[in-house]
Design a protein around this nucleic acid. Structure first.
Lengths: 217, 217
DNA sequence: GTCTATAACTTGATAGAC
DNA sequence: GTCTATCAAGTTATAGAC
């Protein structure tokens, strides 16, 4: 039950960044919430930017590795043939949703943070691109094999539409009640959300390449 | 060419909120960029929160009204029959993309701001729900008529997936270069993005209602 | 309506004792 | 590793002259 100062800081920072955003959270907010001294944050992380990077990396490394492992498993199942679209979507999306489900409160917090950081700029933006960009490229390549008719450019657009839908869903997973009028207050059901997202996106990816696409694709 | 102080403040605030986010932008940043005095901002808007509300309302009122007008026009074209899905998506999405295209720099700035505020919390969150919620409800109802097989709950999920994709696209419309490896640096083409988003989403909405949906839909 | 001046407080960061 | 003390800079907000 006793956790060290460094972890306490990471936990508190993750929660506060998720709730108020990076720019609106002060180091003093974090130290107060974590019950540690202000100087400790500088001792362990040197600066606010480095702290954010540590907050992200602690989770993104796990999620990204699971993504690649899942992709690899589906590749072996496919035995040389292209991996089916739904499998690719599952390999990319499930690790984040799963982690959110398994981790309870902490998972929901990180989901919110990821969704938020996807939309922020400055240092958050650079970190998101560097932490998730390479894995997204791997999946783009795999998608090209599974959807051979689609120009690479158009596929990139669809990948980004999907990332937007995912980020938004993670961001609001706790608060669908506020968004859906008349929605009975149910606990967040990430498994339901994941299934629906996968089937929705699969429909989008399967739409034939647009005809009037000449110039820019 | 001469604009009054109030407009100068709104313009500068819109730009800075878009670039750095609400929490990371100080009133002094705004007054410096606008070339006005710090006190002017308090005189005209009373507080930072009210300023944000004015920044949003100035644009959202226009976009939302165009959405409803376009929907009404398509309703009349349909002559009592349900409005076709692509038309509904167009009526919802085109006004924002059009406004962005027509307004050049200012349009791109506001696009970025909207995309960003969709993901933020606190006061931004409340404002987004209050400014866009009612219009989204109107479109949800129209979508139900056009997609009669879909349970209302599942349709809500899909609406939110779409809003996520839209927000993310607007947010990054200026910077696809950074996101798409090997993408030749082209000027942002919002018309192309709109067309591709509509066809992608239409595929998603047309997927039959999920089978394993019993409990929660 | 716009300015200066300033109050009252918070910010990220560091130096140095223990 | 953790503390107190403190810094210089920046923060929202207001009072009052013009």
């Amino acid at each position: 039950m006793t956790v060290d100062t460094k972890t306490r800081i990471l936990d508190a920072a993750e929660r506060l960044f998720a709730e108020r955003g990076f720019g609106s959270t002060s180091l003093r907010n974090i130290t107060t919430a974590a019950g540690v001294n202000l100087a400790a944050i500088h001792y362990h992380f040197h600066s606010k930017d480095v702290l954010l990077e540590n907050v992200i990396t602690r989770r993104s490394d796990v999620v990204n590795q699971r993504r690649l492992e899942m992709l690899e498993r589906f590749r072996q199942e496919a035995a040389g043939a292209p991996v089916p679209l739904e499998r690719l979507l599952q390999a990319f999306l499930a690790p984040s949703f799963d982690w959110v489900r398994e981790s309870g409160e902490a998972g929901l917090r990180f989901a919110k943070l990821m969704g938020r950081l996807h939309a922020e700029g400055g240092i958050s933006q650079k970190l998101m691109i560097s932490k998730f960009g390479p894995v997204v490229e791997v999946f783009h390549t795999a998608l090209q094999e599974s959807l051979p008719g689609l120009p690479a450019q158009e596929l990139w657009w669809r990948v980004h539409f999907s990332i937007g839908a995912m980020a938004h869903t993670l961001r609001w997973s706790q608060q669908m009640v506020e968004l859906i009028p008349g929605h009975a207050p149910t606990p967040p059901d990430t498994e339901l959300a994941l299934g629906r997202l996968i089937s929705f996106l699969s429909g989008g990816f399967r739409v034939p390449a647009s005809a009037a696409t000449g110039v820019n694709s």
